[in-house]
Nucleic acid binder design. Structure first.
Lengths: 184, 184
DNA sequence: TTCGTCAGTTCATTCACTGAACCGACCGGC
DNA sequence: GCCGGTCGGTTCAGTGAATGAACTGACGAA
């Protein structure tokens, strides 16, 4: 996943093995999920995931290399880059969504949906397979709004990124951190 | 992926983190995929995946512990067990399928579908999101037949398990190894 | 008795993750 | 010009997981 000692699965001709070589290492899929949620900056990933900086650097570099993320300069002086999903990266949404839904339904410690996803054109919540009950299609991430679900826990994670993620917003749109206080 | 040094993602309240704690380690999802394909026995996993035995032992134990697999005695003397998916495990199919489809579409080295999945009641191939074009529902794994696809490579992997996986058969059904020669 | 299979365990080595410290470019205040 | 702070890293020592080879033990077959 996470994963260690040789990220490749030599000899496996299966497509799944190829996928896991790119996104199967530890932390990688959590970083990708965060980008879907609107996190774009190095320090925000770090604050939200508690991931060692060296590992975050390595994962971001690998994801850019794999054409899942694009690194984009959003200001000069000081030079600051943000990481956004490419088309390839956005295509990972069904896999990320499916894994999260599996945990919600079958992993006891993940009981209760922390978030709901509303298909904006139809205004209804997508079902566990990602289908919109309104239009009967699989909703793409850029048409989804994320909202806190019934299982949301407000007592944990008081970092600014987690706080910002508790208010509804459209997937892929940059996170608005202006409304939250800095941590002590 | 896999994954090393602490398989948990402490503090992450997200369901995805819970899922990755159970199936995010290196090799784990490939083992699960193999069970969907009909592999059930220790030595068959080992032959097909080239996974170190100690790691396989550890992964199978963890998957049983997580209620993804069930370990079942299928003969006494010598005692032999097989590993089969629980309901929880079978629910992982959409995630496994979604990841594999992503690689087929977007990872250059995985070009060409190695396998096709036919929704048996309808007799048609499911699309990239797992939907059956016939009945417009998401096909469950026990209603799918796996067949070699156009991208299949016949020159690699000559172990008996890989050979057996090249002939069509229904998912979750045990693999038939009787027709293939043993390796030299 | 000997050979082979199956399902492991043990062990030394290799290598990735971790956490803390360090670094350099820049900005704002004084 | 100096000081403190932020951002986005890199470096490094220590730890612990993965690897691959060797070993084990129960059994069946010849």
């Amino acid at each position: 996943m996470g994963m260690a000692l040789g990220k490749d699965y030599a000899g496996q001709q299966c497509a799944l093995a190829r996928a896991l070589e790119l996104v199967g290492e530890r932390w990688t899929l959590l970083v990708v999920r965060d980008v879907f949620y609107g996190v774009r900056r190095f320090s925000d990933f770090q604050a939200h995931l508690d991931i060692p900086r060296a590992v975050l650097t390595s994962r971001l570099t690998a994801l850019v290399e794999a054409d899942v993320l694009e690194r984009r300069r959003y200001q000069e002086s000081p030079p600051r880059d943000e990481y956004v999903l490419t088309d390839t990266g956005r295509a990972l949404w069904p896999a990320v969504f499916a894994l999260a839904q599996w945990a919600i339904e079958f992993v006891p410690s993940a009981a209760g949906a922390l978030r709901e996803f509303v298909h904006i054109p139809c205004g209804v919540i997508v079902d566990r397979s990602g289908l919109c009950p309104g239009c009967r299609t699989v909703a793409p991430p850029d048409e989804l709004e994320m909202r806190p679900g019934p299982g949301i826990l407000t007592h944990t994670r008081t970092d600014p990124v987690s706080l910002a993620l508790r208010s509804p917003h459209r997937l892929l749109e940059p996170l608005d951190l202006s409304g939250v206080a800095k941590p002590a």
